[in-house]
Every structure is written in C-alpha cells, then in structure tokens.
Computed example of a mutant assay.
Amino acid sequence: MATPPDFADLPQAWQPRFAFFHAHGPTSTPQGREAYRALPFGTKLRIGTNFLAFLFGPIYFFIKGIWRKGLTLLGIGVALGALAYGVELPELVDRAINFVVPAIAMSTANYAYYLHVMRNSESWNPFEGQGRRAS
C-alpha cells in the first residue's frame, strides 16, 4: 500500500484540505460527499469554500498559479456581463448575475489548487474533477 503524501510543506490552512481531498476526492463524488457530511460545520466551511476566492475571483486564481482556470472564470464573467448589458433583465436578476463568478470561484478554488499542486493540472476547466465520476 502506498504511503500518503506529506503535506507538511504546505501552509497550515491548506493541510486539512489536501488531506481530505487526497483521502476522499472532491465533495461532489459520493464518497467525498459522505465524508464531507460527517465533518463539523467549521471544517466543512474550510474545506468546501474559499472566501478569498469569493472576494477576489479570477485574481485569486492567478495568484495561486491556476491562471488557466482564472482566465476561464474571467471569460464567464465577461460573457455574463455582456449578456446582462444587452438584455433587459429585472434588477434582481441583474444583481444576482454579479454573484455567479464569485460563487463558482469560492466553491471550486480549493480542489482546483489541490489538483494544481498534487497532479500538476493544466486544465482550463474550473470544474475539473468536480463531477460524480471524478478521477
């Protein structure tokens, strides 16, 4: 049996995230979802969300070295902005569109960074590995 990797060289905040992803995969898989549900609320927040990614969006991805996924998020934001500008939408929907890219960034940043560090991912897909059949 292979020994698990040592995450001691990572910052303290990333060690439990990486250990969880290494043991269970992303939280979207059945195994990951089951393990995620068993965690205390605060640990769930730290593993499943990233508030810096919510606040800074694609810029956070660029800083962490996941620039391809950051460019994809930026493209999604520009496309949604152009759509909202070109189509007459109710004010509530128009405001809700402003939270789409930050919400995607917040929910995908941790696993995307794990893939970047552990598997040297060069994918442009911010949802890489997030499906039910995640590798």
Rank of each mutant, 00 (worst) to 15 (best):
T29R: 11
P11G: 07
F20V: 06
Y36A: 09
R33I: 00
F41E: 12
P30D: 07
P40N: 12
H22E: 14
Q15D: 10
P5W: 00
A23K: 12
P16R: 11
E34L: 13
A23W: 00
F21K: 07
Q15W: 02
T27D: 04
A19W: 00
P5I: 00
D9V: 11
G25T: 05
A19V: 05
R17A: 06
G25A: 07
F20G: 06
R17D: 02
P30C: 05
Q12G: 02
E34T: 14
P4S: 09
G42L: 14
P16M: 13
P4D: 09
D9S: 15
A13T: 09
A19H: 00
F20R: 10
R37W: 01
G25P: 05
P26K: 04
P30M: 07
F18C: 01
P40A: 12
A8H: 14
L10K: 00
E34K: 15
H24K: 09
P30N: 07
T27M: 12
W14M: 14
E34S: 15
F41R: 13
P30H: 05
W14P: 00
P16W: 08
R37L: 09
A38S: 13
H24F: 11
F21R: 04
Y36H: 12
P4K: 12
P26C: 07
G32T: 03
R33F: 06
W14E: 14
T27V: 11
Q15G: 11
S28F: 12
F18V: 03
A13E: 13
P40E: 13
F21G: 04
Q12S: 12
T29P: 09
G25W: 02
G42F: 10
H22G: 06
P30T: 08
H22S: 10
Y36E: 03
Q31N: 07
P26Y: 02
L39M: 15
P5Q: 01
T29N: 07
G32N: 03
P5M: 02
L10W: 00
Q12N: 08
T29K: 08
L39W: 05
A38G: 00
S28Q: 14
H24A: 03
P26G: 06
G42D: 14
A19L: 03
Q12P: 06
G32K: 06
P26A: 02
Q12A: 15
